[in-house]
């Protein structure tokens, strides 16, 4: 047996086997690293709330227009005063804002919609609405201040 131990001629075969194994492991780690980067970039595409932000602004624009019309009708149409239309509109908008807030709070997002200014025309209906919209989901924050909405009849 002493002969086998003393004979070191063939060690390079075992050594190269080891070298190849180690390099394989290294390559695997590298590839994994690259794959994880890809994972996070794909994940970012899923996480960024682009559709949320769009749907909130689109919905708010549409609702504000309709609320302006509704407020005018409910205040008596042509017999309305700017004050009563504004009061009714503010009530509708705060109601809308509160409901949006509750709905989005359930998925951990904050939505705030407030009225900053309303411009009236001569027939006591609202022509242009200035709103402040803000959205925050913890990582992404979006504000549109002011969001200007033109109400067309």
């Amino acid at each position: 047996m002493a002969g086998i131990i003393d004979d070191t001629d063939g060690q390079w075969i075992a050594l190269s086997g080891l070298t190849i194994s180690i390099s394989l492991v290294l390559v695997a780690i590298l590839v994994n690293e690259a794959a994880i980067t890809g994972y996070y970039s794909s994940y970012a595409a899923l996480e960024f709330p682009k559709e949320k932000i769009r749907e909130i602004t689109a919905q708010t624009q549409e609702s504000a227009k309709n609320a302006a019309q509704l407020a005018w009708n409910y205040s008596g149409g042509l017999h309305a005063t700017n004050e009563s239309v504004l009061n009714n509109f503010t009530a509708l908008l705060s109601n809308y804002s509160a409901q949006m807030n509750t709905i989005y709070a359930v998925h951990g997002e904050t939505v705030n919609i407030t009225l900053s200014k309303a411009v009236f025309n001569s027939s006591h209906s609202i022509d242009i609405i200035w709103l402040n919209i803000s959205y925050d989901d913890g990582t992404t924050r979006y504000t549109s201040e002011p969001e200007i909405i033109e109400v067309k009849q």
Binding site: G10, Q11, I13, A14, S16, G17, L18, I20, S21
Partner: peptide
């Protein structure tokens, strides 16, 4: 040694 390298 060949076998050892192969197994590795």
């Amino acid at each position: 040694e060949g076998l050892f390298a192969a197994t590795l």
